[in-house]
Design a protein around this nucleic acid. Structure first.
Lengths: 243, 243
DNA sequence: CGGCGCGTTGATTACTGTCAAACGGTGTGG
DNA sequence: CCACACCGTTTGACAGTAATCAACGCGCCG
């Protein structure tokens, strides 16, 4: 019996290319271990050598790196369907930790099973590989935002990114989505202090394009926001194409 | 007859895992198109749909993204042996351009041939995949530097990264390496203005750990620098292990 | 009620960008 | 050979952005 928990993941794969019947079955029959995590809980520890990779079934997860100074930087935010630390299958040692961003349910897949998949299904392997390269493209966009955009544009760009990604997996309610973060956590994403995040948000509210109040981000003018932050969704690869 | 130009690339692959004889042959027999580029020349254009991917044979290359405002951000620096835009094999559309960083020689490999490789050699495919995930790990380290390190630490961390990477492919002369960039280009890497780069470098010279004069970076105290910038080479995955 | 977490504000300091100018090396044309 | 232009580096002055420190308000929950 196929594992219905993996539906959102299969759907995410199919966002980028058609899956053959046997490929879909191979994924759906993957043995998994499900687990729920509370807000802030560590899912995978930095420095560990996981024997399984995790994907998000429900809620959000983030990849975060802690510095000796005590400061923290979040390097990625993951939504349902994302194979968060698929790269640990190849990287072996975690260079960051994965934590629950709000309450979150994940599935763990043993690396042994991934290995078998890569031996038997070349096309499926390319799609898994693709998902890690899209992650990397998102990280490049973050680098651009951090280096060359204003704080307001940086946050706005992040909102556009999440808006499009959540839309692609039907997690948008009208023009808004839930974003279970504190202002301090947004600071860890943007590389800003909590105080400055607060002031930046007030500026952004003044533009009328976005508001973020109590876990709900509302985008009242997506085109206006896109324009303001120079957002181009092409890097998200939200189209089907033979790969 | 195997293509000897690909030696540095094969060697880079072997940094992370043993290659089987037939895998090595498959790589060395890959048909390639070699081409040289002068400093600043565009190798692959943003927005294009390449039918081949390029790898660096000699010199440096950088991935760069241009904003509407005219500002520019460099998201990666590549050294000989790096498969710069391997991800375009799966991503299809370039979300950034690749340019020569100093004079640079590259080899182009047709996506068609990469496709065949992935169909026939699962283990080799994982190693190619690995190289893109290491790129992503480096990008995460950049995000951390941009968000949570001082300008001096950021540059110092970059120097440590390049030092280790160049060392792994024997491109270190004693404790120094050539770095064919202007201060303006370093600004585009770090996300700083040229003027501030200049001042940051003076501070750094004052520490005595690193100096950068006329294309040559000299690291006089790697341990001291590592300590100062909180550098941990683990993310570069410079060790052999079955993958 | 009291403590706690989160958001908000004010005051001050530190960092970084911008504008403008000067300096030094290098290559070219007269 | 010198004058000149060009490019990259360096410096100064000033403006804007962001961090830090400290405090306060507010809602939630024990």
């Amino acid at each position: 019996m196929p594992n219905s928990s993996l539906r959102p993941f299969v759907r995410s794969l199919e966002l980028h290319d058609e899956l053959a019947m046997n490929e879909r079955e191979a994924v759906e029959n993957l043995p998994i271990r499900e687990k729920s995590f509370a807000d802030g809980e560590e899912i995978v520890a930095e420095g560990s050598r996981p024997r399984e990779s995790c994907l998000v079934l429900d809620g959000f997860a983030a990849r975060t790196h802690l510095l000796r100074s005590g400061k923290q930087q979040i390097a990625a935010v993951h939504i349902p369907g994302d194979f968060v630390d698929l790269h640990s299958f190849l990287l072996k040692v975690m260079d960051h930790s994965v934590m629950a961003f709000g309450d979150c349910k994940v599935a763990f897949v043993a690396h042994d099973h991934l290995l078998i998949l890569t031996e038997k299904y070349p096309h499926l392997t390319r799609l898994l590989w693709l998902s890690t390269t899209i992650d990397a493209a998102i990280q490049r966009a973050w680098i651009v935002s951090m280096g060359r955009r204003t704080a307001e544009q940086h946050f706005g760009h992040l909102v556009c990114e999440l808006f499009m990604r959540l839309k692609s997996v039907d997690l948008l309610k009208d023009h808004s989505f839930t974003f279970p973060a504190t202002q301090a956590e947004v600071g860890d994403i943007l590389g800003l202090s909590t105080v400055h995040v607060n002031r930046m948000l007030q500026n952004l509210r003044a533009t009328g394009f976005v508001t973020w109040q109590g876990n709900i981000v509302t985008v009242s003018d997506f085109d206006g926001l896109s324009e303001m932050v120079d957002f181009d969704p092409a890097y998200l690869n939200l189209f089907k194409e033979p790969r």
